[in-house]
Design a protein around this nucleic acid. Structure first.
Lengths: 199, 199
DNA sequence: TCCACCATGTAACTGGTTACATGATTAC
DNA sequence: GTAATCATGTAACCAGTTACATGGTGGA
């Protein structure tokens, strides 16, 4: 039955549809106009992706005929789609995720608290932070060992990566503080797991 | 005659082959083992990409038979390939480039001084810095206008982007200082163009 | 003998890109 | 009437993914 793994764009669509029901056109506008500027937005990407999701039973479209300008099709998440979204959001973060690209992780984070709650968002941030630390430390020791043999531009490019990951690590700490600030936090229960380095 | 535009992986290969001649296997190892961990590295990506580049006359392969373990094919850049690489490296940076992804720009930078010299690298950094500043400023004003209506996680995700771009902007200034430090710098000539915002 | 490593290749599938087509409605 | 905007679709093309195939060499 496996629907051959959902590509990133598919998850972006699921997350947006979880916020509220939208048409393909609405979704395109989101990609075109908001800070989600990465991600396709071309009709040749969006509409087929929506069809695939619907075929897989993850979303359901309803054609609106009412006095509108032109018939349009509004999609909403199905229970199965919500489950799939949650599964994606809840995946533990590993270094390969960081390697594959931070934007994907930020996308997950952006959808996370709505779908799984603030506590899950904080766990995510802790997990993310520790993986970032590990990864940045790894790059830094690589730099230390190879510094002498690297061309200047290569060294600088690597340093920009290191800076970026440490910066992101600081951001996770900041973000956790913001979460704590925004919530009374049910007090009691001690931080569970998560903080402590992946794999 | 247009060879249908070179994909990013193609440029990555050209840049690496400009450093020194390598076989497909060598190239895969670079992607697999160095900090260039993004970029495919799977044989199904590399070998066809090399074939395309060779078909386009950008690289030339020579089969080594000598006592080695197994016959291997070592590629080197052709003059046409070098020209193409330089053209790519010399493209002025615009905000869409930032939007499409910083890693691509870092890749260009990493190859830049070898192919075009330190001065071009500094120009690139100045151009990059000013585009980053503009872009980050734009995101920041977007945040200012929409802060109230954004969910916490969305706001934080956006803030991470803003921090990241400002951080990168600082890195460009640092990198320029490193270049100046490493070189006497031919003194005289005033910074040409470049600094001053794209488009 | 068999494993590990060097080294290249390829076939099936998938999803994204660009570019074009269509058509209804509102505003000028 | 014509341009802009809303709104959806699709066809041709291309590159990357996974997974498998092949085959030579050195060492246990």
């Amino acid at each position: 039955m496996k629907t051959t793994a959902i590509p990133l764009l598919g998850y972006a669509l699921l997350g947006l549809l979880h916020q509220k029901e939208r048409s393909g056109y609405d979704l395109r506008k989101v990609f075109a106009e908001t800070a989600m500027g990465n991600y396709s937005s071309s009709p040749g990407a969006i509409y087929p992706a929506l069809e695939r999701l619907e075929a897989g039973g993850l979303i359901r479209g309803k054609v609106e005929e009412a006095g509108r300008l032109r018939r349009r099709c509004v999609y909403r998440l199905s229970p199965k789609g919500l489950a799939e979204l949650k599964k994606w959001l809840a995946r533990p973060i590993e270094r390969t995720d960081v390697l594959r690209g931070v934007p994907e992780l930020m996308l997950r984070f952006a959808f996370l608290d709505r779908a799984l709650g603030a506590e899950a968002a904080v766990s995510f941030l802790q997990n993310f932070g520790s993986v970032l630390k590990d990864y940045a430390d790894g790059l830094e020791s690589y730099l230390r060992d190879n510094r002498a043999s690297m061309p200047l531009s290569g060294r600088l490019a690597l340093e920009s990566g290191i800076r970026g990951y440490y910066g992101l690590h600081e951001w996770t700490a900041y973000a956790i503080r913001e979460y704590r600030k925004s919530q009374p936090m049910s007090a009691s229960h001690p931080s569970k797991r998560t903080q402590g380095g992946g794999k």
